[in-house]
Amino acid sequence: MTLFSGLSAFSITPTDAAGRVDREALSGLLERIRSAGASSIGLLGSTGGYAFLSREERRHAVETAIASVGGRIPVIVGVGALRTDEAEALARDAKAAGADGLLLAPMSYTPLTEEEVFQHMAAVAKAGDLPLCIYNNPGTTRFVFSDDLIARLAEVPNIAAIKMPLPADGDFRREIARLHARTPAGFPIGYSGDWGAAESLLAGGAAWYSVVAGLLPAEALALTRAAMAGNRAEAERLDQAFQPLWDLFKEFGSFRVMYAIAGLLGLSDAAPPRPILPLRPADIARVEAALDRVKG
């Protein structure tokens, strides 16, 4: 398997109110993912709240991850930033700390053109000098990668994979075939959007970049293995158990729900970074009921 295949589990990054990383709590979360048998850890992705952290704290998070699980599971580090020079510096920091791969979304305040995104990503890929996964996350960035841009980026040295959102028409097979026809052989096409994980993997997606696996790695891995083995009945059974949680992700955003799950499981008492507010007690009770469904 390649670096960008299988189950990539994305952890929250517990911090205090001032944005300082709780290294002990983060280490515990990452060791839990490693021991469950995930294919990789996604650090400082959207679930990890990278946009809320300073460069120093992001460096602390990567150093904590490598000290905790480095060499025993690949660590893919998000290096998105508004400025290209900042993203380049973050990429160099990640490599210096021992990261195995990078993840890059085109953050922006002013909407970006395709040429601006191309040059931004090519520069960061060069600076980091590690395998880099394109993070196509239009729900957050408001930038949609065209097939032409994906094909062009796939030829850039160090750009090695893409993390796609769920297709609007739900036709994973057609989209995967279309993108494979435009990208080099072996270029992995994986998906985020947890409620589409089963179908994306059954359709031949290379990876599930999973939010929920950051806190429920064993349960997410069971779903991944069933789907990648082509066992549709088992994959659909496991996916159905997750359905109440997927509904909460859609209603509140997975970021808020993950902090509630961490508290319910006794893994972290950190609150999400402001201005994001914790869920209300009544909604946390709904999360708890959804967790009970997943755990059977």
Rank of each mutant, 00 (worst) to 15 (best):
T2I: 00
S8H: 10
S8I: 15
A9S: 15
S11T: 15
D16F: 10
D22A: 14
R23L: 06
G28Y: 13
E31C: 09
R32M: 11
S35M: 12
G37W: 08
S39M: 04
G42E: 10
L44V: 03
G45L: 06
Y50F: 13
S54H: 09
R55G: 07
R58F: 08
E63N: 10
T64N: 05
T64L: 07
I66V: 14
S68I: 09
G70A: 11
G71C: 01
P74T: 02
I76V: 10
V77L: 06
V77I: 05
A81E: 04
T84D: 01
A87S: 13
A89L: 15
A89E: 14
D93Q: 05
A96V: 10
G101V: 11
L103I: 00
L104Q: 10
P106Y: 04
P106K: 11
M107K: 12
Y109I: 07
L112M: 08
T113F: 01
T113D: 05
A122R: 11
A127N: 05
I134C: 00
Y135E: 05
G139V: 15
T141D: 07
F143C: 14
F145D: 01
S146V: 11
D147F: 13
A151D: 07
L153P: 02
I159C: 03
P165Y: 09
L166D: 01
P167T: 05
D169L: 12
D169S: 12
D169Y: 09
D171N: 15
F172S: 01
R173K: 15
I176D: 05
R178F: 01
R178A: 13
A181Y: 06
R182I: 04
P184V: 04
A185N: 14
F187H: 04
Y191Q: 10
E199Q: 15
G204A: 08
Y209P: 01
S210I: 08
S210T: 05
V211W: 01
A218G: 11
A218K: 14
A222F: 05
M228G: 00
A229W: 13
E234P: 09
L238K: 12
D239W: 07
Q240K: 14
L245P: 03
D247H: 13
E251N: 05
G253R: 06
F255Q: 13
Y259M: 03
Y259G: 01
L267V: 02
A271Y: 11
P272S: 04
P278F: 06
L279R: 12
R280G: 10
R280V: 07
I284E: 15
V287H: 01
E288V: 00
A290M: 08
R293H: 11
V294K: 07
K295L: 14
G296E: 13
G296H: 13
